[in-house]
């Protein structure tokens, strides 16, 4: 276990060391939040609510997206693709180390830094929005959100890992990863709540793990889902997490054996 804690601590240092990259990432994320904020403000106009969202809820949704983007959608898939295609991965494979555990430690370090930054940014934005933000009172909403966001982060980690692992078979796995990430953000509800979509499309998406990565945890925090429905959905999310983990391990094993058989 201590090797993964050390990896986490080193990765944390490294993320902080790359100050410029971190700053750019945050500024970029902030720009997305600001544009979503202005967009939704314009749509709401003077209306008290739009598509079932009050103004305060919609603005809160946007802020929560910032938080979830930072926690869920930060990973090092591109680095993994690079390490596999360049063969640098070899140096890890000859050491007594679980690469999955190692990669997760590094991801968690990055997620930690980004989540802390997001909290600061949200505080700033909420102060600027002067009370227009919906703040959940119920402790259960916060607890459910924390649990769901943690699972969402892990689902993303495993799925991204599986897609990046395709680099074992093709030198072009950057393509699938790019498509995956773009589609993911749309399907997860990272641009707008999925209620905005036509009912049929929304139902189709709800049969996938994607809405569990942003849309669902956000609605938990906004208090739109609670009680038994929340419990059932959390169970479904845990199911998707298990599927993602198994898939990621299976793809990794097959990738490794193909790498070992065909050479890098």
């Amino acid at each position: 276990m201590s090797k993964y804690l050390t990896a986490y601590s080193i990765a944390l240092q490294e993320t902080l060391q790359r100050r410029a990259t971190l700053l750019m990432d945050r500024v970029g994320g902030f720009a997305v939040v600001l544009s979503l904020y202005s967009f939704w403000s314009a749509l709401l106009g003077g209306k008290p609510s739009f598509l079932g969202y009050t103004r305060a809820q919609m603005l809160s949704y946007v802020l929560i997206i910032n938080m979830l983007r930072s926690m869920v959608f930060t990973g090092r898939g591109w680095l993994l693709v690079g390490e596999i295609s360049s063969g640098r991965i070899s140096s890890y494979l000859v050491r007594p180390l679980s690469y999955h555990g190692y990669a997760l430690s590094l991801d968690l370090a990055q997620k930690t830094v980004h989540a802390v930054s997001a909290v600061l940014e949200i505080g700033l934005l909420a102060a600027l929005a002067r009370g227009e933000v919906f703040v959940p009172r119920a402790a259960s909403s916060w607890a459910a959100f924390a649990l769901s966001a943690a699972m969402a982060s892990l689902i993303f980690f495993f799925l991204e890992f599986a897609v990046s692992t395709l680099a074992f078979w093709t030198s072009e796995s950057g393509g699938p990863l790019f498509c995956f990430e773009l589609f993911l953000q749309f399907a997860a509800g990272a641009f707008f709540p999925l209620d905005v979509l036509p009912a049929a499309l929304r139902r189709a998406l709800e049969a996938t793990p994607f809405p569990y990565m942003v849309y669902f945890p956000a609605r938990l925090l906004l208090g739109q889902i609670s009680g038994r429905e929340a419990a059932a959905r959390l169970a479904a999310q845990a199911g998707w997490l298990a599927v993602a983990a198994v898939l990621s391990l299976a793809v990794w094993r097959r990738g490794l054996s193909s790498y070992a058989a065909e050479g890098g």
């Binding site: 050390t6 080193i10 240092q13 050491r95 180390l97």
Partner: peptide, 17 residues
């Protein structure tokens, strides 16, 4: 580790091994 002093990689290897 590129961005960090070599000592950090040594520390990681200490744990790995």
């Amino acid at each position: 580790w590129w961005e960090l002093p070599a000592y950090e990689t040594f520390r990681l290897n200490k744990e790995i091994y």
